[in-house]
Design a protein around this nucleic acid. Structure first.
Length: 455
RNA sequence: GUCCCUAUCGUCUAGCCCGGUCAGGACAUCUCCCUUUCACGGAGGUAACCGGGGUUCGAAUCCCCGUGGGGACGCCA
C-alpha cells in the first residue's frame, strides 16, 4: 500500500471546538499508526467569515494537544501552499480541466458543476422553489467505518461563486487530489456531501481516496451535535482551565473509539499503536464533562512534582493572584505539593490553598457550628497552643507524633485536635492533612491563628 | 418534506461480523470499609439489549417494518 496521507482541514471561522479536535486527533492518530503524513490545510475560502485570530487559535490548540503536523502552514511541505486563499492558480487550472471536459457552465455569474443525465424541472416543497433535477446513477461510497453507502446526487451545484471565489466542495476535492490525500477522515456531517465529492473525483478521473466518516459528538445537554457555542465545547477553555492536554486527548479519543477491551487510560504511544479505522464506532457519542474531569484527575495524580508546580505557577500567574505569587517560592512549592494529591484539577488550587496565602480567609459557618458543638474544642485548642512552642515542625511525622502524644496525655482522640485546628487554621473542613498544614504554615502563623480563634 | 447514517445501563462503551456467557468495564449515583477533615483507594449495590414481526431448537447478535436519535439538503465549511 502506498504511503498514507491524511489531512485535517479546518476553516478559521470560529473558535476551535472539541469535535474539530477529535477529527484532527483521529487523522493524526491514523497517520502516526500507519507511519503516514499528517497535513494541516486551512480552508479559508469564505473571506467574509475568516479571521487571523481564529487561525491562531487553531495552531495554538493543535499544538497544545500535541497534534503536530508534518506539512502545512508554518512547517511547509512539497504540496503547498497550505492555505486555500493562496491556491487560486491551482483552482483555475483544475477548473480548466473540468471546463475542457465539458462539465461546467455559467449561470447567474457563478460556475456550476454539471452532472451527467437527463434533466427535468421540479418544485421543491421544502425550499419553496423550482429546481432542476438530474437523473443520475447513484454514487457509491465504500466507507471504512460505515461500509457500503449509496446516495443519489441529483442537482448541479456551484463550484465558483459569482465573486470568483471557489466553493468548499470544489477546493476540498481539488486539494485532496493535488495534495495526494489517500484517506479522508472527517465528521459524519460530511457523509451527505460525499456524493458531490465522488462526482468531482470521477470528473477529474482522479483516484478515489478512502473515506472514513466518524460519528459526531453530541452536546451534553439538549438535542443536537456539539457546536462552538455550547458549554464546554471550546478547546481553548480547557487550556485556560489548565486541564492536562494528555487527559483531554485520552478522553476525546474514547468518544467514538475504543481499543476493543477495557483499557481507558492509555499513553499516547499506546493509543497510536492501537488506533485503527475499524475500531471507530458508527453511532454518535454524547459529551460528558464529569468523565473528562475524572480523567484529568487520574493524570494529575501521577504528574511529576516539577511539572505540577510549573502548571500551578502558570495558573496563578494567569489568574493574577498576586498574594500567592509573591509568596516565598519554597513555601509556594510546599503548599502546592501538599495539595496535588487532593484535587481534581489545577483550577481548584486558588480556592483550595487560599488560607495559606492570607490571614483574611473565610470561615465556613456550618463547619464552625458543627465543630464547636462537639466536645470541648476550645480546651483542645488551648492545649495545642501550650505544646506548640516545643513542637517539632520538621516533618509531617514529627507534627503527628507531637499531637498524638498530646492526645494520649490528655486522653483525647486525635480527631478532636484535628477538627478544631483545621477550623482555626483554614476556616473549613476540607484540605490536606492537618499535620501537613501545620508544618507548612509554620509556628508563627499557626500560633496567631489559634490565638485569634480562641478569643 | 426528501435523502443519508445510527440504536446495549443516566453517560462512554465491550459483546454483534463467526447466533447458545448470570450481558462485562468505566464515569455518575447509593451503601459499607479505610481514615486525621476532604479527597484518593478498596468492597458491594441500583441500573441496559428501543418496539413489533420473521429466520432458528435457540436472537443483544441475522433479516424486514416501525419508532427514537443524528446529519445533509447554501454562491458556509
Amino acid at each position: 500500500m502506498s504511503q498514507v496521507r491524511v489531512r485535517f482541514a479546518p476553516s478559521p471561522t470560529g473558535f476551535f471546538h472539541i469535535g474539530s479536535a477529535r477529527t484532527a486527533l483521529f487523522n493524526w492518530l491514523y497517520s502516526r499508526h500507519t507511519g503516514g503524513t499528517f497535513v494541516l490545510r486551512i480552508e479559508d475560502t469564505d473571506k467574509e467569515r475568516n479571521s487571523e485570530e481564529f487561525l491562531n487559535v487553531i495552531y495554538n490548540s493543535l499544538t497544545w494537544l500535541g497534534l503536530n503536523w508534518d506539512e502545512g502552514p508554518n512547517v511547509g511541505g512539497n504540496f503547498g501552499p497550505y492555505r486555500q486563499s493562496e491556491r487560486a492558480d491551482i483552482y483555475k487550472e483544475y477548473l480548466q480541466k473540468l471546463s475542457d471536459a465539458g462539465r461546467v457552465y455559467e449561470k447567474d455569474g457563478a460556475m456550476w458543476f454539471k452532472l451527467l443525465g437527463e434533466r427535468h424541472e421540479v418544485f421543491d416543497e421544502h425550499r419553496q422553489k423550482t429546481v432542476t433535477k438530474v437523473k443520475t446513477e447513484p454514487t457509491i461510497i465504500e466507507d471504512r467505518i460505515r461500509g457500503h453507502v449509496e446516495r443519489v446526487e441529483d442537482e448541479d451545484f456551484v463550484i465558483i461563486r459569482s465573486d470568483g471565489n471557489p466553493v468548499f466542495h470544489f477546493v476540498n476535492v481539488v486539494d485532496d487530489i493535488a495534495m495526494g490525500i489517500t484517506h479522508v477522515i472527517r465528521g459524519e456531517d460530511h457523509l451527505s456531501n460525499t456524493s458531490k465529492h465522488v462526482e468531482l473525483f470521477e470528473a477529474f478521473s482522479a483516484p478515489m481516496p478512502e473515506f472514513a466518516h466518524i460519528p459526531l459528538i453530541l452536546k451534553q445537554n439538549g438535542p443536537g451535535k456539539m457546536s462552538k457555542r455550547d458549554q464546554g465545547a471550546l478547546v481553548e477553555e480547557y487550556q485556560q482551565r489548565s486541564y492536562l492536554p494528555e487527559a483531554l486527548v485520552n478522553f476525546i479519543c474514547l468518544l467514538g473509539w475504543n481499543p476493543g477491551d477495557d483499557r481507558e487510560k492509555m499513553a499516547i504511544d499506546e493509543i497510536v499503536q492501537l488506533f485503527d479505522l475499524p475500531g471507530v464506532n458508527q453511532s454518535n457519542a454524547r459529551f460528558d464533562d464529569k468523565k473528562l474531569a475524572h480523567m484529568n484527575m487520574v493524570y494529575l495524580l501521577e504528574l511529576p512534582a516539577d511539572k505540577f508546580l510549573f502548571l500551578a505557577g502558570e495558573y496563578f500567574k494567569q489568574k493574577q493572584l498576586s498574594v500567592a505569587l509573591s509568596a516565598d517560592s519554597e513555601y509556594f512549592r510546599e503548599v502546592m505539593l501538599l495539595s496535588q494529591p487532593k484535587i481534581k484539577g489545577i483550577e481548584e488550587l486558588p480556592d483550595y490553598t487560599n488560607y495559606f496565602f492570607t490571614e483574611d480567609f473565610p470561615i465556613d459557618e456550618k463547619v464552625k457550628t458543627k465543630v464547636l458543638g462537639k466536645g470541648e474544642p476550645l480546651a483542645r485548642l488551648a492545649e495545642l497552643l501550650e505544646v506548640l512552642p516545643s513542637m517539632n515542625l520538621a516533618s509531617d511525622e514529627s507534627v503527628e507524633a507531637a499531637i498524638k502524644n498530646l492526645a494520649e496525655v490528655r486522653s483525647q482522640g486525635f480527631g478532636s485536635y484535628q477538627s478544631i485546628a483545621r477550623l482555626a487554621l483554614t476556616g473549613t473542613n476540607i484540605g490536606p492533612s492537618i499535620t501537613g498544614i501545620i508544618r507548612v504554615l509554620g509556628r508563627e502563623k499557626v500560633q496567631s491563628r489559634l490565638e485569634r480563634f480562641s478569643t
